[in-house]
Design a protein around this nucleic acid. Structure first.
Lengths: 329, 329
DNA sequence: TTGTATGCGTTATCAG
DNA sequence: CTGATAACGCATACAA
């Protein structure tokens, strides 16, 4: 069936060892034999079996990637860059959609170990899992503390939260409400909320936060019902912000005149579908590359482990939901 | 380091074979020994090495998935369901973002073969590649003819195109323009265009199609410039439709009064961010499951190969960009 | 019911 | 510069 190294060797009239040598460019090989071998490989349409190779060298060049779902534009884009960059460095990606479910995440973790992945990159929105403390398995987290010694990458959540809140303030909002994920999840993303609270307190205003796991209409309706005088909303992600916008429209509350809204993430998808939404743009590509770099450093044993948190700068996008644009009525 | 089967055997006081037996539940095993072995596995925190297993059984339970990018909500959602369903059937997913580039796709194809994947699911938007005709490697295509004998799954593109066009017609549009991908790509998605043309011709109207690879503003501006009297647009995907909507707004063309717009895809993301957009919803989950089922059938040698095209029904969503909703002004 | 020996396809060691 | 041999971790045929 599939040709193996010994088949190539036979055709080329050399030993399997020699074939392996030209395959990996190791040791000295005569020009003539090299050519013979290459010809034989072409003739047989030979592809080396990475499974067998991995078994011997004890390295798979596989990395496991665990996030809630590729269906969400933010994770979809992050995973795209993760895979793309990893691929450019010779690594392949085993995809895991945990859906934020702890049971799924655990079983993925086991699956990845059985598959001998060289490392794992895992991301936000799931509850904490002790089992990430796997001896000799490099792990990098995104916006999530995985275990005591795993490094975590995030956008500058505090700075982002601060800038978003400050922007609403600067635009004249007098009652600003924040919408965020469950606070009991200990993630760096909570800093968005902390920053919001700090800024408000510095301005002698009362912080009010609504919690919702996903973009949940009910929570947002409740917010509008309970605070009809609210004139500024900082949502911790753009999907939530879009639902806010929608609900405001339903209630004939004009944006940005009566209500200013700012989100968080700034994916390409949102920038295309909802460019009027002000937001805090995360450096998604940068985050992905940092995560992969850090993981591979660990894999290569080149990580000294002294820095556990890595923070990448965000970019404030002041669009139409926070200010009237030139040319608009 | 990592415990192997023989380590477990030693601790349990049995032979490696016996351990393998309880691992795979094969043959007869004494209740007592089974317990001893299980205890030993727990004690050592043993996980079987799927790489070694794969090498022997010549099956990896790995499937390669090649699509342009998980960053696009449609593919992101499709890939989510693909992975999710495959996982439920014991298969793992190797992710490949081809970015619609032929060179990347080719190199992924080779990578997947080296990794001994059991099969490949590949999707739209790339040019045709002969190399998908790989002996003994099951392949399933989505919206794309991969090779003469590979089955292809699609939504009912003709019916979807027909319903979309008919809807615009029913709502009173008199000049309907279609925007689609490059026509030289031979994909089932071209049927959307064919249907559009058929419906228009049946109504003695002149079909006009603009081509654009991605949601390209320039093309859309040109469309508006060249056809200021256009009052209906059928875009072949929702991203394009959203750019159309945006451009119309810029030009103070009101929707749906002066211009009605309908897209295609109907992802969750679009339904959340742009619920006012009328669209033709693809059964994404159904497509994913059909693709995986068909692939596994091939892998198991249970596919008779008589049916090459599989078409899943679409759902017309008649929202605000084609009709005023109750309660709206 | 359990154990021994062999091979999956590759790479590395060590001779030649 | 090249070749024989062992080993990676597991599962199967065959013995016991």
């Amino acid at each position: 069936m599939k040709p193996k190294i010994s088949d190539v060797a036979k055709v080329a009239g050399v030993s399997p060892t020699t074939v392996s040598r030209v395959l990996n460019n190791r040791g000295y090989i005569g020009e003539e034999t090299r050519k013979k071998v290459n010809d034989a490989m072409k003739e047989l349409n030979y592809y080396p079996n990475d499974i067998a190779r991995s078994l011997y060298i004890k390295k798979t060049f596989l990395i496991g990637v665990i996030f809630p779902t590729t269906g969400n534009p933010f994770y979809g884009q992050l995973i795209f860059h993760l895979e793309n960059y990893a691929n450019s460095l010779g690594y392949k990606v085993l995809l895991c959609n945990s859906q934020g479910r702890e049971d799924k995440e655990k079983s993925y973790l086991h699956m990845l170990q059985r598959n001998q992945v060289d490392g794992i990159i895992a991301g936000a929105h799931n509850r904490g899992i002790e089992e990430y403390d796997i001896p000799n398995l490099p792990v990098v987290g995104f916006d999530r503390y995985l275990s005591k010694n795993t490094p975590v990458i995030s956008s500058d959540n505090y700075e982002g939260g601060k800038q978003a809140t400050q922007l609403l303030l600067d635009k004249g909002c007098s009652k600003i409400i924040h919408i965020n994920g469950p606070i009991d999840l200990e993630t760096p993303a909570n800093l968005r909320r902390t920053a919001y609270e700090d800024v408000l307190r510095d301005n002698n205003m009362l912080p009010i936060t609504y919690e919702t796991e996903w973009a949940n209409e009910e929570v947002i309706r409740r917010l509008f019902d309970e605070h009809p005088d609210c004139d500024g909303i900082f949502a911790s992600d753009d999907m939530i912000a879009s639902v806010v916008l929608r609900e405001a429209k339903k209630r004939k509350i004009s944006t940005p005149n009566q209500l200013k809204v700012i989100g968080y993430d700034g994916t390409e998808t949102i920038r295309t579908l909802l460019p009027e939404l002000s937001t805090v743009e995360q450096p998604i590509k940068g985050i992905a590359e940092k995560a992969v770099d850090l993981l591979i450093k660990q894999i290569d044993g080149a990580w000294n482990g002294d820095q556990l948190e890595y923070t990448l700068p965000v970019k404030l996008i002041d669009s139409e939901t926070t200010s009237l644009q030139k040319g608009e009525k």
